[in-house]
Design a protein around this nucleic acid. Structure first.
Lengths: 261, 261
DNA sequence: ACTAATTTTTTCATTCAGTGAAAAACTATT
DNA sequence: AATAGTTTTTCACTGAATGAAAAAATTAGT
């Protein structure tokens, strides 16, 4: 069907985009792939993948083991450590998060906005129980979690429109899936200054989250979660609030002084 | 001068290689760069960098802040966490490293080979003093550190040749810089089964390191370091040895069972 | 041991996407 | 207002990426 007619099946991605999509074929559940698997996953012809994967390997972004399987390369990990979200955000946030964890005895989390979802940057748990879901580095929906709603609520209207108009995946009975309801909820969040979410993503998880502003713009969201449906999680608010403002102040400070990136 | 004559200044790197070199412009000391800085750093014309950086940004591998400065993107960090070196090696090694740290009360480290140098994968310190140098994720020379020498000693001769024939940077008075001496030292390492290095990289640092074999091939090196020039570091050997074999056995085990990547 | 099936690698004519010089549009800085 | 350092757009050119197809290598099945 390729040469016959009308719209090209692939909107002709750039070489760079293709190379990145090769990397994108790897995930937590598929950390090891061979050429044809990558080809299938990306939709690129295997000869093309062969070349691209070779170049990514040369750059250290992929590595190939004895049996012709590729996995993500060390260079990738190395550069990941240089990312602001790791070296700056996480590092600076840590003492505030630890203190928050200590005071509330709940699971605390730090998330940032990236693209159309939130990403967990750090997560501190006291109990070792729940962790299956939502590992550090994993992405979570903006419309169905407390941190997500906070991040969204204070984003520019362009992004908000984009999200509310996209299909809102229903994770639980409580998940907000209607545009109207979500917009109203976001407005509530802005009114109260924090988000409250009960079982909207994981049944039984109750959470509140608050924004971290630096230079008037939201930079991250801090949250407190309890997995036993404890309705009194809102009592943690003052501690949460304190952590957020403390953290924000520290970021602001560092931004002013040495630009500290 | 471009069109005039002879050899092309850049040996015409592929698009992918150029894109990666844009990423490579970022480092711990230059985590924020604008277009022209990237252009300078990579030798690519700014119009080209403009396009490449744009595509990398679209892919989440770069992010641009308000003042047109780029830094490494969240996607990069996210994918770094999926790397075997993080999810597999580091995770599995941790209990053994902790135990080793507990028993020796010294700084313990885990490193792997990548390209022509060693990379610190993990590092546990009791004292908070020394850390300036050698952060996790940083690269260290193969010829001048205990972990490096171990990794090198058990590598295939091809790599050994390549390293001993390359210029051996002299970091301290004790650094081995002659090919003959280095080859002899590597042979010593293989004879003893571990490497001993005193002040070859950092003055005052004394270290021993041992290999972690899986499937007959060296996969990593574990080391114990003391920064006060304590000559009796070799007393840690039995603990180190134990950690390495324990760790290796666990890796071997996981390799056999579910392929566990 | 042989065949079949799958995967990796090479080759190569085609063409299309990347290129980069140059100009234009911004943004400070003095 | 003028200058210097940026980012962004444009565009004609061409060389580099492409991917079908064949060859080589590897694996699986009988």
């Amino acid at each position: 069907m390729s040469t016959t007619s009308s719209t090209p099946p692939t909107p002709s991605k750039s070489v760079t985009a293709r190379a990145l999509s090769v990397l994108g074929a790897f995930s937590a559940v598929t950390p090891r792939l061979n050429l044809s698997q990558i080809s299938r996953a990306t939709g690129l012809p295997v000869a093309t993948v062969f070349r691209l994967a070779g170049e990514l390997e040369d750059g250290g972004f992929l590595q190939r083991d004895g049996s012709n399987f590729y996995s993500l390369g060390i260079k990738l990990w190395e550069m990941g450590l240089l990312t602001p979200v790791h070296g700056r955000l996480r590092e600076i946030a840590m003492p505030f998060l630890l203190n928050l964890q200590y005071r509330t005895r709940e699971t605390v989390q730090l998330a940032v906005l990236d693209g159309l979802d939130a990403v967990y940057v750090e997560k501190l748990t006291s109990e070792v129980s729940v962790p299956i879901q939502s590992r550090i580095g994993s992405r979570i929906p903006l419309h169905a979690t407390a941190v997500g709603q906070v991040l969204l609520a204070y984003s520019d209207s362009g992004l908000i429109d984009q999200v509310v108009d996209s299909p809102l995946t229903k994770y639980t009975e409580e998940t907000i899936t209607s545009k109207r309801t979500l917009l109203r909820e976001l407005s509530n969040v802005r009114d109260r200054g924090y988000a409250y979410s009960a079982s909207e993503y994981l049944p039984g998880a109750v959470a509140i989250a608050a924004p971290v502003f630096v230079g008037g713009k939201i930079e991250a969201a801090c949250g407190v979660v309890n997995y036993d449906n404890r309705a009194d999680i809102e009592e943690c608010y003052s501690s949460l609030q304190e952590a957020c403002t403390g953290f924000a102040a520290r970021l602001e400070e560092l931004k002013k002084s040495g630009q500290s990136y």
